[in-house]
Amino acid sequence: MTTGAQAATAAPQARSAASIDPLYRQIRDLVYKVSGIYKTEEKLYLLAGGCERRMKQTGSKTPREYWDHLTLHPSRDGELRQLLNEITIGETCLFRSQPQLDALRKVILPEMAADKTRQILKKLRIWSAGCSTGEEAYTLAMNMLEESAGILKGWTVEVLGTDLNDRSIETANAGIYGDYALRCTSEHYKRKYFLPAEQNKLEVRPEVKKLVSFSRLNFQDDSRMLFMKSMDLIFCCNVLIYFDRASKSKVVDHFFTNLNYGGYFFLGTSESLLNLNDKFHLVHFPGAIAYWKPPLKVGKP
C-alpha cells in the first residue's frame, strides 16, 4: 500500500510518545479545536518540539506555564499563531501526499472523465489555494500530464495557484527547487518534468509551467473570491488553520460556490473542517479525506 513508508518510520517515534508530558496532549486538543490540525500520537513529538522552541522564546519554564500563556495570557491569540507557524513550517514539498494523488487519479479522474456534462467541455480547473511557493500546484500539473495520454486524452487542464504573499508567488513562478522540496519526488518525475538549474537545484520544465498560473489573492477579499469560478478541484492545505471560526466558515462557503457540482475540496492530510459546513459531503478515499459538492439532483450512488 501507499503509506508503507510512513508506517516504517512511525515505530521509533511511537515509543517515545509515552515519555511525552501529558500536557502536550492538552495542547494538541486546543490546537485541534482552534485550527483543525490534529497531531496524532506519532506526531506528538513534533508538537512538543514546536512548543519547546516557543517556550524558549516566551520564557516559559514548564509546559504548564506555556499552557497558561496559550490560554490565559493577553497575547494568547498571537502566541497560538506563532505555535501554528512553528508546527507547519517546512512541511511543504512536492508530492507531499501520495494518498491524495492516488484518490485523484484512481477514483476522481475516472469519475469526472465519465461525467456527461464535463465531457462537453473536456476541461479541468484545479486551484491550489494558499499555494505558498508552488510545490502543490506543480505536483498536480505533473500528475495531470501523466494522464494526458490516457484518461485525460483531449482534455485541457488548468492549474491556478494563489497566495497572499507576493514573495512566495515570485518563488512559485520561478519553479526552482532544491533537495528538501524534492525529497518525495521520484526519479521518474525528476527526469521527465525537471531541468537542471544552478546549485544542484532542479527547475520545472516549461511544458509543466504552461499549465500553471500563479497570482496573489487574499481569501478575505470577497469580491475577488467570487471570480474564482468553475473549479473542479480545490486544494487548500494548512491555510485555514490561521482563521477564526467565522472567517473560516466564510472562506469555505466561497470554496463551495467556486466548485462545480461534483467537485472536490481537499485540506491537508491532518486537517479537519471541524463540521463547519454541512453542504459538503465528507468523503473518504483510501488514506485521504475530501469534501464533495454533490450534484444538484441527489441520486443514489
Binding site: 500500500m1 501507499t2 503509506t3 508506517a7 492516488d102 484518490a103 484512481k106 477514483v107 476522481i108 475516472p110 469519475e111 459531503h281 465528507l282 468523503v283 473518504h284 478515499f285 483510501p286 488514506g287 464533495w292 450512488p301
Partner: peptide, 23 residues
C-alpha cells in the same frame, strides 16, 4: 469496516472507492 478499509486496515490492496459514510 468501511473506515478500516480507507485507513490502511483493509484487505491489502487499493480499493478504488469513494466512501460517503454520512450518506
Amino acid at each position: 469496516d468501511l473506515l478500516c478499509r480507507v485507513r490502511n486496515l483493509g484487505y491489502g490492496y487499493y480499493e478504488r472507492q469513494r466512501v460517503d459514510m454520512v450518506h
